[in-house]
């Protein structure tokens, strides 16, 4: 068997296992409802917040950008944070992490395969949120004005950043048994705030804005808004041309990915040295 065929087989196995773990506790209908209810509720919170102030607020136009970014944020919540949860489940809940390590699949391939199921879930959530916004909440944009090529490029770059940062979060989960749940939740909450998902980063303190601009996700959300609905959300980032925006996204993604792979290696070694790979402390 060739190396790509072996890799594909391993990814497929990890994805299949991931699907079983994610979904086999319920019948398909219950699982679909369960998967849809959280992202839909979050989107509806935003929509009702906007409706509550629509008559008196002055920046209604910006809301569409926040809504769209919140829909794409599903990838961060499901895939990136989900990779940290894989470690928690395998080590603490099912106590099977040691078996993954002793199998030939390799942790990177395993995490990658598991994340593919989460990618599908996130994509369905994205579609659900955008469709609800379009059909029920009247949050629409001009399809003719969509710039498909840069949008697709931005989307792919963002996904690369998400998957690689997911490895890093998984690495942290390896060295922090018991606290890993808090790390996972914290990453989700912190990225929502730092990357200006539902507000422009201009509202953050200046020093925090600098941190935000080091993160690829900040550029990702801005690029997705600009190329999908025609305008961004941040006055500061709007001074960047399309090319500069994409370049910033590409460079930050490349740097982030390198640091994440290196960081995962360091953290995994530390987890092995300290005997934490099999240290179930939660239950």
């Amino acid at each position: 068997m060739s190396r790509p065929a072996v890799l594909a087989a391993r990814l497929r196995t990890a994805a299949w296992l991931g699907w079983q773990i994610e979904a086999n506790w319920a019948d398909p209908f219950t699982f679909i409802v369960y998967s849809a209810v959280r992202p839909l509720a979050t989107a509806l919170i935003l929509a009702v917040m906007y409706r509550a102030v629509a008559g008196i607020a002055s920046s209604g136009q910006a809301f569409l950008g926040f809504y769209v970014a919140n829909a794409f944020h599903e990838y961060v919540i499901r895939v990136l944070v989900g990779m940290g949860w894989v470690i928690v489940e395998e080590r603490e809940e099912f106590e099977t992490l040691k078996f993954v390590y002793t199998s030939p699949i390799g942790m990177f391939t395993y995490l990658w395969g598991r994340s593919s199921v989460k990618f599908v879930q996130a994509s369905l959530s994205l579609l659900l949120i955008l469709t609800t916004g379009w059909l029920i909440l009247g949050l629409r944009w001009d399809w003719g004005a969509v710039r498909w090529l840069p949008l697709l490029l931005s989307f792919v770059l963002g996904l690369i950043a998400i998957v690689y940062f997911g490895f890093f979060v998984a690495g942290w989960a390896l060295v922090l048994p018991r606290a890993a749940i808090s790390v996972n939740e914290g990453v989700a909450a912190a990225l929502t705030l730092l990357c200006g998902v539902i507000f422009p980063i201009d509202l953050l303190p200046r020093a925090v804005q600098v941190v935000a601009m080091l993160l690829p996700f900040t550029w990702w959300y801005e690029a997705l808004r600009r190329f999908l609905i025609g305008h961004g959300a941040s006055a500061r980032l709007s001074s960047f041309s399309d090319g500069a925006l994409l370049a910033a996204l590409a460079v930050s993604t490349a740097l982030f990915s390198c640091v994440s792979v290196w960081g995962y290696g360091v953290l995994e070694r530390r987890a092995r040295q300290n005997g934490k790979l099999d240290q179930a402390r939660l239950f």
Binding site: S58, L176, A179, L193, F199, L203
Partner: peptide, 28 residues
Amino acid sequence: PTWIMSDAVFPALSMASFVLLYRALGAP
């Protein structure tokens, strides 16, 4: 300490996002 973080800090981060959304929308 990590539970203090997850119980206290993370809900506050989400709350801050919602407050800043109102601010961005120019709400009262």
